[in-house]
């Protein structure tokens, strides 16, 4: 069947098999390799994308469920030479090591701050519980989210 959606502002019209997940569609058919496969079972959060502005694990959504939707990946937040303030904080605070979880962490954290779920450090940690990281121990990610949230509040 034909699938039509808006990927990072770009209109896509592609044939897709009904059993194909949004993750597989994005990676294999739409060239969005910034969306990572980490587990395929909705546990690790490496494939987090915004589906109509809501963070979802792309591995746990069928591509056809995104019909007519607005899909955003981490690429939507990093233009040529410019970064989202959260991305900037992550870099400056050393919160990026292997970087494989990072695209998911960026989207999950942006949503948490937008929804007001990033209060004290423990609530930030709760809001990150769906994004596993094996390298950093999370501390520097939490600091980055905190700094970004404070920056947003000031803005």
């Amino acid at each position: 069947m034909m699938l039509e959606l808006l990927l990072n502002g770009r209109r896509l019209r592609e044939p897709v098999e009904p059993h194909v997940t949004l993750l597989r569609f994005l990676r294999d058919q739409a060239g969005a390799s910034e969306v990572k496969y980490g587990c395929g079972e909705g546990v690790c959060g490496a494939c987090t994308v915004f589906l109509d502005a809501v963070a979802v694990n792309a591995c746990s959504v069928l591509a056809v469920q995104a019909e007519g939707a607005r899909v955003e990946t981490v690429s939507a937040f990093a233009g040529d030479g410019s970064l989202h303030p959260l991305q900037q904080e992550l870099i400056e605070r050393g919160a990026v090591q292997c970087g494989f979880c990072t695209p998911g962490v960026v989207l999950g954290s942006i949503e948490a701050v937008r929804l007001g779920l990033a209060g004290d450090r423990m609530t930030i940690r709760r809001s990150l519980a769906g994004n596993l990281c094996r390298c950093t121990g999370y501390g520097k990610i939490v600091e980055a989210v905190e700094a970004y949230r404070d920056g947003e509040g000031a803005a």
Binding site: R27, S33, E34, V35, K36, Y37, T73, V74, S75, A78, L83, Q87, L90, I91, E92, G94, V96, C98, G99, F100, T102, P103, V106
Partner: peptide
């Protein structure tokens, strides 16, 4: 010095091409 790692910029923007990418 706590320099920003040169690979971090591309990673945070999702541009790093890992093995499966």
């Amino acid at each position: 010095r706590a320099l920003v790692r040169h690979d971090a910029l591309e990673k945070v923007a999702g541009r790093t091409r890992y093995a499966a990418d």
